[in-house]
């Protein structure tokens, strides 16, 4: 592929990542507005007021809204005929380095075992890139995510015995909300993954966080469980910042795959109120659409 195209896609991704550090997705803003209007304690109100003032100032002053801009993670669904497929992983890394300087993003990549911060926000295996290859397609879909420290911490996965059933899943998820969830900057988006082993469940739980707020699983039982968990966690009343309120979560999303008859893999992952996820879709000529955010404009250099 021409260097010109690689440079252009790098540039678009760098700017898009930077933009998502400053402005939350439309569905997150709408949900926060809804939750804000339903809280009536002075404390919850003051916290929501601060959050909205912060998001306004971030856009106005062109600064990242939270100082923790996380580890960058990309889930790509790339067509086998997308012209830049060979360059994609390398250009995403370049885009993160570029955005780290220009946005600016915090340096959040520490090499494990050697234990030093690379100072570039990238390292071995970071940014994280998960691949889904789509046959006979020439477009490329990219979900972007900033995984902050506070909201990464509650993540947990295990394998239950079938006897523990979906009741066991319920306990596994709810226990995590009161131990770690309350420090992960609620209201949270909770992603639950169900599958056959730890890594299938874990990946499902992360993919669940990429789904829009208010969306439902197309499996009727899973959708029913999403609603039960959402109402149940809300009833705990973590409120904004875990300091108490009528609600705890922006939603619960479940993603599932099949399992071995003797095992139920389950994982929970959370997004904080500052849920910086983005979704951008490129066609083969690099025309793109963004459906998570209004207001993103690419400025050609």
């Amino acid at each position: 592929m021409s260097n010109e195209q690689v440079r252009k896609m790098t540039d678009i991704m760098s700017q898009f990542v930077g933009f998502t550090a400053k402005k939350l997705p439309d569905d997150v803003i709408a949900k926060l507005e809804e939750l804000r209007s339903r809280e009536d304690s002075p404390m919850a109100k003051v916290i929501y007021d601060t959050m909205f003032r912060n998001q306004d100032l971030a856009v106005k002053l062109n600064r990242p809204s939270c100082q923790d801009t996380g580890v960058l993670q990309f889930w790509v669904k790339c067509g086998t005929k997308f012209p830049l497929i060979d360059d994609l992983e390398a250009l995403l890394k370049e885009a993160v380095i570029d955005s780290t300087i220009k946005t600016p993003l915090r340096h959040n990549s520490v090499e494990t075992f050697d234990e030093y911060n690379t100072g570039k926000n990238v390292g071995k295996g970071t940014p994280t890139v998960w691949w889904d290859i789509v046959p006979n397609s020439d477009q490329c879909e990219i979900y972007t995510y900033m995984a902050g420290g506070g909201c990464t911490l509650p993540g947990n996965a295990t394998v239950l015995m079938p006897g523990e059933g979906y009741e066991g899943i319920t306990k596994f998820v709810l226990d995590r909300m009161t131990s770690y969830g309350l420090n992960a900057c609620p209201p949270l988006l909770v992603g639950v993954g169900v599958g056959t082993s730890v890594e299938t469940a874990a990946l499902n739980s992360k993919k669940a966080l990429m789904r829009p707020i208010g969306s439902h699983s197309d499996n009727a039982n899973a959708a029913k469980m999403e609603k039960l968990l959402e109402d149940g966690i809300n009833a705990i009343g973590l409120g904004p910042q875990g300091m108490g309120g009528k609600y705890s979560v922006m939603g619960v999303n479940i993603e599932n795959t099949a399992r071995h008859p003797s095992a139920i893999g389950v994982a929970v992952n959370v997004g904080c109120w500052s849920h910086r996820r983005g979704h951008i879709v490129f066609d083969k000529d690099l025309n793109f659409t963004v459906d998570t955010h209004t207001g993103f404009e690419y400025k050609e250099n």
Partner: peptide, 10 residues
Amino acid sequence: PAGNAVVAAV
């Protein structure tokens, strides 16, 4: 309240 880095900074 965490996540409000710009409010704190100003």
